[in-house]
């Protein structure tokens, strides 16, 4: 992996002037992903904050080929582009010796829920596409609605906090595991660890088949924290093992944990700075913290077992 000094000599193929909020994690994810690509990839995007705010007519922040499609079908469109590249190479209309990289980037709503069947189809057919989900844990663009990625107990505009319920009633879907079951190259990453994420992007782009990277992307507006804390909240997510860094290879057989915290922090360190969990710290609500912690521990232990098993 190149050093930051070396990377800074490369042109970033995503410019400022986009209309994403101050402190938004999405452009940080995009910058790191594009810097890791050997050359300009073809970008495919479902509707999400990033798409809405980076390609406002008549401007675009992307200095790459770019395709915006509907919410449901990003992975299907990316599959089609990959098939088209193959066909054009066969007919001699594209340089057969050249690699064309295709990266699909969507939010968690467009990935976990609405675009899920297109994603599953793409992974099952094994198209050579990298799908990156920047996971901000809700439908942020339309005003913070809960998604399959929203954590347990979190407040959103469709998981209220009141007498009858205290935020989202379910635990979040673990999409990386589902993707791994398809036999794709799968990784969990976090934007605070740029080195780990960029290594994974590079690996995925050179992988003969589909790949899926889920990257933790804390949203200041939706998670209710000051906009300078985006990277720090991501760090806390990983240090508490809520968002562990791992990768899955060999058709779902080999699980590797890329980072194990020296001291696994209690989940309150992650919950406390975020307004969406403010009710966790009110009277009689301690059970929310206990339930959240128990789920984090369950998943972390399961992951460790899988990693141990595949190392044997």
């Amino acid at each position: 992996m190149a050093s930051l000094r070396e990377l800074s000599q490369k042109e970033v193929l995503f410019t400022g002037g986009h209309r994403l909020c101050a402190g938004c994690p999405a452009p940080i994810v995009v910058k790191q992903a594009l810097l890791a690509a050997p050359r300009a990839p073809i970008i495919v995007q479902p509707t999400c904050c990033l798409e809405i705010s980076s390609a406002v007519f008549p401007y675009t922040a992307w200095k790459t080929p770019y395709y915006h499609n509907a919410f449901e079908n990003a992975a299907a469109v990316a599959s089609g582009i990959e098939a088209a590249v193959k066909a054009l190479k066969k007919r001699g209309k594209l340089d057969a010796g050249k690699d064309y990289y295709i990266i699909c980037i969507g939010g968690d709503g467009g990935t976990y829920d609405i675009g899920f069947q297109a994603l599953s189809g793409m992974l099952e057919r094994g198209h050579r596409v990298l799908y990156i989900c920047y996971d901000n844990g809700a439908y942020m663009n339309t005003g913070i609605q809960r998604s399959g990625a929203t954590p347990y107990g979190a407040w959103t505009t469709t998981s209220h906090v009141g007498e009858a319920q205290k935020g989202k009633q379910q635990h979040r879907k673990d999409l990386a595991w589902i993707a791994a079951a398809h036999g794709a190259y799968v990784a969990n990453a976090s934007l605070h660890n740029w080195r780990d994420f960029m290594r994974k992007v590079e690996k995925a782009l050179n992988y003969e088949g589909s790949s899926f990277i889920n990257i933790q992307a804390p949203c200041p507006r939706g998670w209710r924290f000051p906009e300078n804390m985006t990277v720090e909240i991501a760090r806390l997510g990983t240090e508490t093992c809520f968002y562990p860094l791992f990768e899955v290879e060999d058709r779902g057989q080999k699980w590797v944990i890329n980072y194990t915290p020296k001291n696994k922090l209690p989940i309150t360190e992650y919950l406390k700075p975020q307004g969406r969990f403010a009710h966790f710290f009110q009277k009689d609500n301690e059970y929310l913290i206990e339930e959240f912690q128990a789920e984090v521990d369950r998943r972390w232990e399961h992951l460790q077992r899988l990693a141990k098993m595949s190392a044997e």
Binding site: L4, R5, E6, L7, S8, Q9, V12, F14, T15, G16, G17, H18, L20, C21, A22, G23, C24, P25, A26, P27, I28, K31, Q32, L191, W194, P220, P226, E227, N228, T230, V231
Partner: peptide, 30 residues
């Protein structure tokens, strides 16, 4: 700061920071 800046507003030349693009910086403070 350069790898995290969401606005590509940290100006770098030959591996060294030369300034901040104040026309783009939204002041997030990351």
């Amino acid at each position: 700061c350069w790898i995290y800046c969401p606005e590509m507003a940290i100006q770098v030349k030959d591996g060294k920071i030369t300034g901040i693009d104040t026309t783009l910086c939204k002041g997030c403070g990351i």
